[in-house]
Design a protein around this nucleic acid. Structure first.
Lengths: 337, 337
DNA sequence: TTGTACGCGTTATCAT
DNA sequence: ATGATAACGCGTACAA
């Protein structure tokens, strides 16, 4: 079923059918109706591939995700969902590309074969060669997270440094002197993963500024790693009375470890962090945390990308989220000796 | 940059370049090398859209997921990741379509505009009009889960009925007489969601066969729903000593509720279920459960779909998973009075 | 090895 | 004002 068939049945030329479809040129009412009737009857829809070829636009955007082998965290997946949804709202389809290492076939295919109008890049590192690759191809792109030097590109990111600073400040206000940062996994931090790195920076700054003792530990992105991590932390640093964290996937395990150690939250121990609302509220007691606006971030990323596509010469824009810390039940004054 | 440009620079015709690219026809070695050099130099890759138009294949498959508004469960998302990964291994791209209600623009676009070579449909119901829609279009598709009458189509599914039966059997062997089924959400079950429905069936059958008392409750797909659900369950049916569940997302909450009620697992209370390994191992104590082979399911779905695409007239195939129950630490003999 | 038709829809141009 | 003709986007594959 193609446009020629419709034209034949309606007794007109292909172009007339096309004009009825697009409305870009006036077609007399009787003709229009006759054509529309045929279209409706056969449930005809133009071939998206042919249209894309002609228009030079695929109405598709690429979303580069971390490979599934490194289990995606709930937050990453939530982000994928929010991007897909935001794209669907503006009639854009989303092509997924799992891309981990440097040159990945799927990634290359997407960026070099003009399968998409633009790309959203997740989980980027401070130095990220996928970014350089995209830059050199000239394909519009938006990153989630930013590189060390994000000038000249569009991105959305969370101000992990500032948020962790504020968490530490909040804990310090409550009298905590020995505070630990539970970061993301050691591999990620070592690989120059932005949030991990910036959380460190914000943590150090706040600890120094407030004259506190800070302990930094890395922790895998899952519950059992969280449990082991806090267990070790408590053993090595028994005087730590509070944790600040950006590792939401580890929260359930951290909770268990505190439980096992007989530490009641917030009476004996405080925890604050940066997390999607969902995770914060599932913590027991509910976590004092800066709630990441996941849905908004996905929608904004799509919006930024559409801008890049529409006006490539326009100056890039970005969005740095610094949501307020929602005071819940997991932080309290340090226990007197 | 297109094939004509390569041809011009190499001083040959476009067809010759095409043959070098595809290898479908012999090209003399010197010419081949000259052309290849130009291709390498300019890092040329054929336009996927043009190729798709000509070949009538997009090398893309559609994955229809539940809309993000209804937060996707970890399992669903894990499945998405496994499909994407499996597809990437065979050089297929995956186009995501969030589709909830009956006629969704994104779904329609994908199935009627020939954007994809085939579709994988997630989260289908016993009666699912997306299935009917796909059937009438003739687009190859594979479903995750099966409709009431799955004849004539390819699918992969988990034998929830059988697995829940075996869970109940295991609990009965341990002496439990009052067993509850914690199902998926009431809306899903009411909407004719296969796993929910079949879990009910398997549960009833096993309960009857063993002469037990069974209680069925529905439960939202998240931790807090699980907590509330078990809380109510314990209040309404204080003599229940064991739970069988297919609702993995609710597990953390169920755990909390048992905790709060002062019930030690497995001493005072047993829990068994069907869950991805990851969830089972995060339960405390580790959950006795039939471990869902998520990665395998995704890979098999892709493989089945490729078969459908390659030989549309071939008889449809399916895969029913019935993984063994891994005995962990959450089930034990019923406590003597 | 090359010329050329083809896949399908869009749109500028021309004819009525 | 309305509709038709034809070129075009890009790669593929058959006939020559």
């Amino acid at each position: 079923m193609n446009i020629g068939e419709i034209a034949r049945r309606a007794g007109v030329s292909r172009s007339t059918v096309s004009y009825v479809l697009s409305g870009k040129k006036a077609v007399s009412e009787p003709t229009r109706q006759r054509i529309q009737a045929v279209i409706d009857e056969l449930d005809y829809r133009p071939n998206a591939t042919a249209r894309a070829l002609r228009e030079g636009r695929t109405h598709t955007l690429g979303l580069v995700i971390p490979p599934a082998t490194a289990r995606l965290t709930d937050m990453q997946l939530g982000f994928v969902a929010s991007v897909v949804e935001a794209a669907a709202r503006v009639d854009l389809d989303v092509l997924l590309s799992p891309s981990g290492g440097d040159h990945d076939r799927s990634f290359e295919r997407i960026v070099t074969s003009r399968r998409v109008d633009g790309v959203i890049l997740m989980e980027i590192r401070l130095e990220d060669d996928r970014v350089s690759r995209l830059r050199q191809t000239g394909l519009p792109f938006v990153t989630i997270g930013r590189t060390a030097d994000p000038s000249g590109m569009s991105w959305v990111d969370v101000d992990y440094a500032g948020l962790i600073s504020r968490c530490v400040g909040h804990l310090a206000d409550l009298g905590h002197q020995q505070i630990a940062l539970v970061n993301r996994s050691a591999e990620l931090v070592a690989a120059g993963y932005g949030p991990g790195h910036r959380a460190q920076v914000g943590f150090s700054a706040a600890v120094t500024e407030r004259g506190l003792t800070g302990v930094e530990v890395c922790c895998g992105d899952d519950a059992s790693a969280g449990e082991a991590c806090v267990e070790q932390l408590l053993a090595a640093h028994p005087d730590v009375t509070a944790i600040a964290t950006i590792n939401e996937a580890a929260l359930p395990g951290m909770q268990r470890a505190l439980d096992t150690a007989g530490l009641a939250v917030p009476r004996d121990f405080s925890v604050a962090g940066v997390a999607a609302r969902h995770w914060a509220e599932d913590f027991r007691p509910a976590l004092t945390a800066a709630d990441l606006p996941m849905l908004e971030m996905g929608a904004d990323a799509v919006a930024l990308l559409m801008e890049c596509i529409a006006t490539p010469q326009a100056p890039p824009r970005h969005q740095l989220y610094s949501p307020p810390i929602s005071l819940r039940a997991s932080t309290g004054p340090v226990r007197g000796r």
